[in-house]
């Protein structure tokens, strides 16, 4: 194997193992935080107490935040690695769908965590999310209430999803894909030391109270692209149709070849169809990465 090939295969081997270590740390720190966090009443004050009053609260909050981010980023890189090397071809369609759905749910878990900070960014993100779902025709309002409700229980459903439904669902979906649930001690140790050092030396960002007046409010990094799109496109299109189409195309990617084959197209058309969808997805990923980067540098 050539030198770059060896490096890539080494990275492909390390990414999921380091990710699993981050997941374990994220679950453990989340369990600790659950002893003080309350999703009702003055949630902003509760989070501030965790950060400034409760012993080692700042450490566990940062550890939970960084472990969650690292896990999802590594999972994203792991999926991109498979996607770019077109390894989706070796997966059964069901397994590929489970992986993509679990990655989407991981992002949703990060997003609910972002809401649960209960600062201005979190509250606004929750309201935007609720209002976008409400744009769904016919039952939008009712469907939105399955995820988040206005009023005193605003944080309750995101909390339920964040700490109960989503972790269970993600672990269930990934159960067949993960070969060993406890990674090698070396990975666990290096992940633990790295994330603990981050939590020890990097202070959490200052939380802005929900009622403060701030010129620009940004969403989580992975939704900055959508935040930019929401400025120029209708909410239904930018918030639901475009992300939905993108995820839908990735989901059916391994099925594109077999589906065309079943329709008795010749092999050349099948190859063009599958490669066309693959290229379209690459262009979409690049465009979204550009939008995100642009929003991160110049504001959404």
């Amino acid at each position: 194997m050539s030198f770059p090939g060896r490096i890539i295969s080494r990275i492909s081997l390390y990414l999921p193992r380091l990710g699993l270590s981050a997941l374990i740390l994220c679950l453990v720190s989340g369990l600790v935080l659950a002893f003080y966090y309350r999703p009702m009443g003055n949630v902003f004050q509760n989070v501030e107490e965790i950060t400034t009053l409760v012993p080692y609260g700042w450490f566990f909050r940062q550890l939970h935040y960084s472990a969650g981010q690292v896990f999802v980023i590594l999972m994203l890189l792991h999926t991109l690695d498979h996607f770019f090397r077109r390894r989706y071809r070796i997966y059964a369609l069901g397994e590929w769908i489970s992986l993509i759905v679990s990655l989407a749910l991981c992002f949703y878990t990060l997003f609910t965590g972002f809401i649960l900070k209960a600062d201005q960014e979190g509250v606004f993100a929750g309201r935007i999310f609720m209002n976008i779902i409400e744009t769904l025709p016919v039952a939008g309002g009712a469907i939105a209430r399955l995820f988040i409700v206005p009023g005193n229980s605003f944080f309750f459903l995101p909390y339920l999803y964040h700490s109960f439904f989503l972790p269970l669902l993600i672990i269930y979906l990934m159960r067949g894909h993960i070969r060993e649930w406890f990674p090698n001690e070396r990975f666990l140790l290096s992940g633990g030391i790295g994330l603990s050092l981050y939590a020890l030396f990097v202070s959490p960002r200052i939380d802005i109270p929900p009622d403060a007046s701030v010129a620009v409010v940004e969403g989580p990094w992975f939704f900055l692209g959508i935040q930019s799109l929401l400025k120029v496109l209708p909410s239904f299109l930018a918030g639901l149709v475009i992300p939905g189409l993108f995820i839908g195309c990735i989901l059916v990617l391994p099925a594109a070849g077999p589906a065309l084959r079943a329709l008795s197209f010749n092999e050349r058309i099948i190859r063009i169809g599958e490669t066309g969808l693959y290229c379209l997805l690459i262009i979409s990923i690049c465009l979204y990465a550009f939008l995100t980067l642009r929003a991160a540098i110049w504001g959404p």
């Binding site: 309201r127 929900p210 007046s213 969403g219 929401l230």
Partner: peptide, 20 residues
């Protein structure tokens, strides 16, 4: 639009949305 709290700008006498 999507429910963010508007800021009041006393200079221009207008309300502006910090999100979009």
């Amino acid at each position: 639009h999507l429910g963010c709290t508007l800021n009041y700008d006393a200079v221009s006498g207008r309300f502006a949305c910090p999100c979009h």
